[in-house]
Amino acid sequence: MGEEKELRVRRIKNGTVIDHITAGQALNVIKILGLPDASEGVVSILLNSPGEHGKKDVVKIENRELKVTEVDRIALIAPNATINIIRNFNVSQKKKVHIPEFMEGVIRCINPNCISNSNEPITSKFNVTVDDDRPKLRCTYCGRVISENIAKHLL
């Protein structure tokens, strides 16, 4: 049984495994990380994988070690995700993601009249706070707050 589970998506020799992604969010994680463009290696996606705490998604990126700053951006939609850096089939580093205090170029402001939604040469910027364990994004330009359905507003 264990072998069958492992074979669903094979172990990777070198790279990054993002585990414990909120079920259903793996494709959004891929989008935030700019994959597959940001990596030439094989990227495997596992959706609705049974885990200890219910269903989860997993993303495995071969031959690319993601940096913490890169990966923290996914905390907005997958706050429980863990990052495993794999070297020669072994986990060499394991980290939890942390919601960053500032976010640039990931989310679109929900205010259609915000200057960041026009043809200006800028990217969206948000100051992020956490309220009751939920991230709250305040647009640096217009001040509008996004606290629900954040994944819907990915750029």
Partner: peptide
């Protein structure tokens, strides 16, 4: 547009005085 004055302040080398940015 809301946020226009802040955007202007990012690009300007002189002080920006906001005289109203949309509903902002």
């Amino acid at each position: 547009r809301e946020g226009a004055a802040f955007l202007a302040s990012e690009f300007s080398t002189v002080p920006i005085l906001n005289a109203g940015d949309g509903a902002g």
